[in-house]
Design a protein around this nucleic acid. Sequence first.
DNA 1: CTAAATACCTGATGGC
DNA 2: TGCCATCAGGTATTTA
Length: 270
Amino acid sequence: MPELPEVETTCRGIAPHIIDRQIVEVRVHQRQLRWPIPDDIDALTGKSISDVTRRGKYIQIHADGGEAIVHLGMSGSLRLVDVDEPLKKHDHVEWQLDSGHVLRLHDPRRFGCVLWHEANTAPHPLLEKLGPEPLGNAFTGAYLFQQTRKRKAAIKVFIMNSHVVVGVGNIYASESLFMAGIRPGRAAGRVTAAECEQLVQAIREVLARSIKQGGTTLRDFVNSDGQPGYFKQQLLAYDRAGEPCRTCGQAIKQKVLGQRSTYYCSRCQK
DNA sequence: CTAAATACCTGATGGC
DNA sequence: TGCCATCAGGTATTTA
């Protein structure tokens, strides 16, 4: 599932191949993603890519006049392939480059999106209200502590809210709470200042480590070269129901929180 | 305002 | 082999 490390891996993979390259043609094979792909998506045609950036899990492909915003949803991936590579099922969008390569969006479950945002206009509504980047300086224990005060939602659900902090999805939420020793179901407002500090550090550490491993591939995530990520083997809690806790040996528990599978150790996490 | 539920979608999996 | 039910999950939107 593309969470922040997978999106970052994708950005780093595609950037050197598309920056300063010209888009020759944009081909859309399936418009119905999370939202229909707008007609102005081919505004990129004939333009040169100036930069590739990321905000949360949104990928921004910048060019003169605007940017394409791409979200991978749950099952999306962006790959660079040769022009003669046959189109696969669920390859929905292609950006033909002047290098002879093609950037392809593959997304079986179609929860992703592709949008166009004009330059020099109001910030895009999807990006405008996002919380701080977890690896940036604004995401601190003090910030999280202040945000969580008087909040009754489960801490796990809370940190998965992109208006609080971006990039923490279901996998890394369970992982970071395990690392910080906090039960996922505890009310956010009952997490102490010291624990908020530990949690912030855990989130930063697990995301940074996963980025180094090229992300986590559970089923279908592949990077821009079509390769999986290798962080799965380092998971401490996620997807380990019934398996021994790597700290104390007790079986990892699984429960549903906010309609999402949640994994934790009832002995190590309080 | 918060919190919880819902919608979007397809593929993998398990039971019969 | 086929069919149905269930689950997976990011996040904007809707409902309570």
